[in-house]
Design a protein around this nucleic acid. Structure first.
Length: 864
RNA sequence: GCCCGGAUGGUGGAAUAGGUAGACACAAGGGACUUAAAAUCCCUCGGUGCGAAAGCGCUGUGCCGGUUCGAGUCCGGCUCCGGGCACCA
């Protein structure tokens, strides 16, 4: 054994051994309980970053722990390999996206292997391989057959920089989720997945996801956005037909004094045709139609509208009310037409004030009568219906139902439920994605590619000009095709699928990655699914996690899986952040080594002014506050990198980078190494018999060992408090060192030191597997550490011989007593009352009572 | 505006069930070893007062109030910070 801890050679040794022995291969075994732990797979961008290190370290602790606990663990890794960066690299650097991606995968794989992560690499998948994406196409065809995939023309979110369509979930504050460019509206023919068919189930099943963070559940609930209300027809005056509106407040219908339409509403122009308003309406539509709704909202524009010149009839009051266009009404939600009740909706209130439209109060608070003349804002709380015909006097909450029922009975409306969730647009006008398996025939129209023609492979010889539009359009060989139905001339769909399709079912593929007849081998899927623990960033709370839930349900309905939900437990880890360094004068940011700033005060290389610590922000290239994990591993080893990221903060919190923290983790491993080096011969030694008080201390140490085993087990299992688990191990190590350092005690303690050392190394195994494996071997154990069972503790060994009882007077600590464990309450009470110091606080006061908390504390309650 | 989180030493963070606040680590200060430095080891370390010292008192978990023998933890009312949604009728 080397006296010095040499991470590099130890890590090389064990990584090679694990690989040679296929130590982490997962094989279905019905006789063993399974555990499926999964981290969100990475996009192969080129190099791993600290976020990956954190994500995969957390997952690996769980995987290794569960293995030691006797579970048959599935812990796979793969690549979310389609996507825009590859295509941009092709444009900028003239390298084919496939080559670029393959090279990145190769490099990142060696990086991940250097971290010693216990993956079953036999199950590795890359979504850009035809063996994978053919199943995207196959699933698309099944969806198409069931009507879950359909094509329609609509206004879609268009990112002018990425030159592609975006799903609603991919638009953040009116900007592209990838490049932050402002998203515009564009009318296009697009393929959609009918996720809204599952809206109810996606919402309801959130209740069964007790292993998910409340925050993510709330975000999904809000995103799905279920509203219960009614649809009511308002008959048109001077024209046939009616305007269908949706409202969640049917109880206010007697207060509806006008109607607001979205500028995109199909009746907007026809209604004004021939009226004096025709021209004004046309101008209004032209003005607002260009601006996306996101922009309109972001600008917080004033409510604006224009009268159409037309009227419709309120079916409840019978009066004719004007129809307006309004810039704030959304075409995509409800029916694009809103009954406006200014007294009870703030937007309608502002609109009515601006255009001097009547305001009629029909809901009054229980104890007060409102008047429209003095109303300064809409009254939106509960109350009683007034001036509402036969419904007057009804509580408005009950009135909602009654109005809807009445409308339904009289044939001009019905109860209705609306969702905010829209169908998922999956067409992308880019090359590096899954080709949509559809052919357009001049005679047969839209023809799905037959299943036995799959995969529709991406052509390799396409130009990457960066001009925009799908490069697939440029490939004649790909484009021109015989119609599978009639054999006539046809062309292929040149759009590719959103890459979120790839990641919506990859966890199923891992269960049977080699299966050639379907996306998933149902029987193997039955063994492994669902994912017991899923780990990843919270940024996917509504994107990937919603799509994956939808896919699981849709695939269940075509018989591919038995589960309703893919991920039983979800851990959303925090981001890794670090302070930035900036020039005091200009605010330029510098990497710390350039700024010389970690020493506290470098100089700006450009202007010579001081470089100061800036804000703590998420590690990113643009903030120049990146730590490259590879440098870290080279300098300290993977175990130190893992230990630091796991120890510095609980997994769900943000982790602030600290160079000294890394040093601290490294020092701990060095101390441990030296300790084992000094005590490695202990394995065979036997303790001498000793004096009683030393014995007592050694029994305390043994108790500490068992307590630590219990604590670390509890902290890892379900709680994921890795930081406190590690702290507990450090504490035990400190106690062990203290005893071992005392020459008097050491001779007597050899057995217990060796027992404690074994426990420490077993407990550390999931966190720092290389150094733990090596030390385990050096201590003379022959079985490989990753094959050894997790240590158990005995309840008997936890039992205290002595208790420390805290004595309080009126809730303040005034003394402590060490007493034998079998002591009675009476003895504790009399002991406490006999204590001189305690009594000095009770002097001259009447003792009202004694509160005894068994084995912990006694509180003497005195007067005054 | 609405909905979720959160606020504890110089710093990251502990306190799982209402029961010794500050575990573990980092930083800082002091000491040992060394010709010296690095490394290592030991000690101190919320604030404040008294004391030569051992020690002891008071106070302290964003703010105000409440419940309780006892509150970082529970309840009511705020402030600030982070995140999500946002003209959804």
């Amino acid at each position: 054994m080397n006296e010095r801890y040499q991470a590099q050679s130890i890590e090389d040794k064990w990584q090679k051994l694990w690989a040679d022995e296929q130590a982490f291969r997962a094989i279905e075994d019905p006789g063993k309980p399974k555990y499926y732990v999964l981290e969100m797979f990475p996009y192969p961008s080129g190099r791993i970053h600290m976020g990956h290190v954190r994500n995969y370290s957390i997952g690996d602790v769980v995987a290794r722990y569960k293995r030691m606990r006797g579970f048959n663990v599935l812990h796979p890794m793969g690549w979310d390999a389609f996507g825009l960066p590859a295509e941009n690299a092709a444009i900028e650097r003239k390298v084919h996206p496939e080559i670029w991606t393959q090279e990145n995968i190769l490099y990142m794989k060696t990086q991940l292997k250097r971290m010693g992560l216990s993956y079953d690499w036999e199950r590795e998948i890359a979504t850009c391989q035809p063996e994978y994406y053919r199943w995207n196409q196959w699933i698309f065809l099944q969806f198409y057959k069931k009507g879950l995939a359909y094509k329609k023309s609509s206004f879609v979110n268009w990112c002018p920089s990425c030159e592609t369509v975006l799903a609603n979930e991919q638009v953040i504050d009116g900007a592209c989720w990838r490049c932050d460019s402002t998203v515009v509206q564009k009318e296009l023919e697009q393929w959609f997945f009918r996720i809204t068919d599952y809206a109810d189930e996606l919402l309801d099943d959130l209740d069964q996801l007790s292993g998910w963070p409340e925050k993510v559940l709330t975000m999904q609930r809000n995103w799905i956005g279920k509203s219960i209300g009614a649809e009511i027809d308002f008959p048109l005056v001077d024209a046939d037909g009616a305007l269908k509106i949706f409202t969640t407040r049917p109880d206010t219908i007697f207060g509806a004094t006008f109607i607001s339409l979205a500028v995109e509403h199909p009746l907007a122009m026809p209604l004004s045709a021939g009226t004096a308003q025709e021209k004004a309406v046309k101008l209004f539509i032209e003005r607002f139609r260009k601006i996306s709704q996101a922009q309109r909202a972001a600008a917080e524009e004033e409510k604006e509208g224009v009268f159409t010149g037309a009227y419709c009839r309120n079916p409840f009051t019978g009066e004719n009310i004007p129809i307006y266009l309004a810039n704030f009404v959304l075409m995509e939600y409800g029916t694009g037409a809103v009954m406006a009740v200014p007294a009870h909706d703030q937007r309608d209130f502002e609109f009515a004030k601006k255009y001097s439209l009547p305001i009629r109060v029909v809901i009054h608070p229980k104890d007060k009568q409102l008047s429209a003349d003095v109303l300064s804002e809409a009254y939106v709380d509960e109350g009683v219906m007034r001036d509402s015909g036969e419904f007057s006097g009804t509580a408005n909450v009950a009135g909602k139902e009654k109005i809807a029922v009445f409308a339904e009975a009289n044939g001009f409306g019905k109860k209705a439920i609306r969702f905010r969730l829209r169908d998922w647009g999956v067409s992308r006008q880019r090359y590096w994605g899954t080709p949509i398996p559809i052919v357009y025939c001049n005679t047969c129209g839209v023809v799905p590619v037959p299943e036995d023609h799959l995969p529709v492979e991406l052509p390799k010889d396409v130009p990457f000009s960066g001009k925009g539009g799908s490069p697939l359009q440029e490939s004649a060989a790909f484009n021109r095709v015989e119609c599978p139905k009639c054999g006539g001339a046809a062309r292929r769909e040149t759009d590719t699928m959103d890459t979120f399709v790839d990641s919506s079912w990859y966890y199923l593929r891992y269960t049977s990655p080699d299966f050639a007849r379907a996306p998933v081998d149902v029987s193997r899927g039955r063994y492994w699914m669902a994912v017991d623990q899923y780990i990843g960033g919270v940024e996917h709370a509504v994107l990937h996690l919603l799509y994956a839930r939808f896919f699981t349900k849709a695939l269940r309905d075509i018989g591919l899986t038995h589960v309703d939900e893919p991920f039983t437990n979800l851990l959303t880890q925090g981001m890794v952040s670090k302070e930035t360094y900036r020039c005091v004068e200009h605010g330029w940011l510098f990497p710390n080594e350039l700024a010389g700033a970690e020493k506290g005060g470098g100089l700006c290389p450009h202007c010579g002014r001081t470089v100061d610590k800036g804000r703590v922000e998420k590690m990113s290239k643009s903030k120049k506050n990146i730590i490259d994990p590879e440098d870290l591993i080279t300098a300290y080893g993977a175990d130190t990198a893992r230990l630091f990221t796991l120890f510095a903060a609980p997994p769900e919190k943000d982790l602030e980078w600290s160079d000294q923290g890394v040093e601290g983790a490294y020092r701990f491993l060095n101390r441990l190494w030296r300790f084992v080096y000094q005590h490695r011969a202990l394995g065979s030694a036997k303790s001498e018999t000793t004096a009683d008080e030393v014995d007592l201390e050694l029994r305390d140490l043994r108790r500490a060992i068992h307590r630590t085993i219990k604590k670390v087990s509890d902290d890892i299992d379900g709680r994921f408090h890795f930081n406190t688990a590690i702290a507990a191990i450090m504490e035990l190590f400190n106690s062990l060192s203290a005893v071992a350092q005392d020459p008097l005690k050491r001779a007597a303690a050899t057995t217990i030191i060796s027992e404690g050392l074994d426990a420490i190394i077993l407990l550390l195994a999931p966190f720092v597997p290389h150094v733990a494996s090596e030390l385990w071997q050096q201590l003379g154990h022959h079985e490989r550490l990753d094959r050894v069972a997790w240590p158990s503790y005995s309840e008997a060994a936890l039992e205290e011989e002595q208790l420390l009882i805290v004595v309080q007077v009126n809730g303040k600590v005034r003394g402590k007593m060490t007493v034998p464990a079998e002591i009675t309450q009476e003895q504790i009470e009399s002991g406490a009352l006999a204590d001189a110091k305690v009594m000095s606080f009770c002097e001259g006061k009447k003792i009202k009572r004694l509160v005894y908390v068994p084995r912990r504390l006694i509180n003497i309650v005195v007067e005054g």
